[in-house]
Design a protein around this nucleic acid. Structure first.
Lengths: 129, 129
DNA sequence: AGCAACTATTACGTAAAAGTCAATAAAGAT
DNA sequence: ATCTTTATTGACTTTTACGTAATAGTTGCT
């Protein structure tokens, strides 16, 4: 039946510690169910964890991450709330687009550096021969 | 002559505090010249600062940022060093590519959420009319 | 039943990246 | 020459995101 995961199964899968998972729970980012005092992680918890880790890779703070995840819930029924949500989405998207630009620039620069490394290497082997 | 910038000019331009600039200096990320005890930032310092801030936007630590900036210097003359540098470049590029993927996924999800917001809004105005 | 291995809770510690505050010192304005 | 900004140094504080015990309860295995 229930495909629950224990805390260590999850830590092994994603290479983090139990402390980290409990910390995320304290911060309200993830809410596993309990069997007695033991934590059991559902597939949906695992999915949330993936979102958290993706956010971390992007350099978001845990606060920002939970904001983003919050956006994924059922959209609110009231027009004002909807407008606010859409503004948040927009802001977050803007931030991400900036990151895209930053990354592309950086990769281009790294490509250039690599190129000059190759040139340098070629010079070295020329000298040797 | 010399188009030096004072520390406050720089903080105003980039929206940070003097404390931050001095901290970056302590960490060896930037090295303004001195006139007496006063700091004077050259255009090249300003450029470095831009690189630092771009790195921050990407969620890199100051340590990682100085590693990246280090890569931009004249490539070393020795083959072994060159190989090491190229490996570092490769690793950093891999990291950046992962971030690209992460960002694109996230943007797509946000687009979807926005779409459902619009749908919801349309429903609301239908009801009102 | 007994022991190892896993888990939970609580509390204190730490590293990174600054913020805040106080005490000078120097430079420009009047 | 004095007054007022502006800058420097140094020390202490804060926030985020965990790490590290210490202690205790629980489960699985034999």
């Amino acid at each position: 039946m229930a495909d629950y995961l224990t805390i260590t199964e999850l830590t092994n899968e994603f290479g983090l510690t139990t402390r980290t998972l409990r910390f995320y729970e304290d911060e309200g980012l993830i809410k596993p169910v309990r069997r007695g005092r033991q934590r059991l992680y559902r597939p949906s918890d695992r999915t949330r964890l993936k979102l958290i880790l993706r956010g971390k890779r992007l350099g978001l703070s845990l606060g920002e991450i939970s904001e983003v995840i919050d956006m994924y819930r059922q959209p609110p029924g009231e027009a004002g709330q909807l407008a606010m949500l859409m503004e948040k989405i927009d802001a977050r998207r803007k931030d991400l687009r900036q990151k895209l630009v930053d990354i592309e620039e950086t990769i281009a620069e790294l490509d250039a550096v690599e190129e000059s490394c190759r040139t340098r290497l070629a010079e070295l082997s020329d000298i040797k021969s």
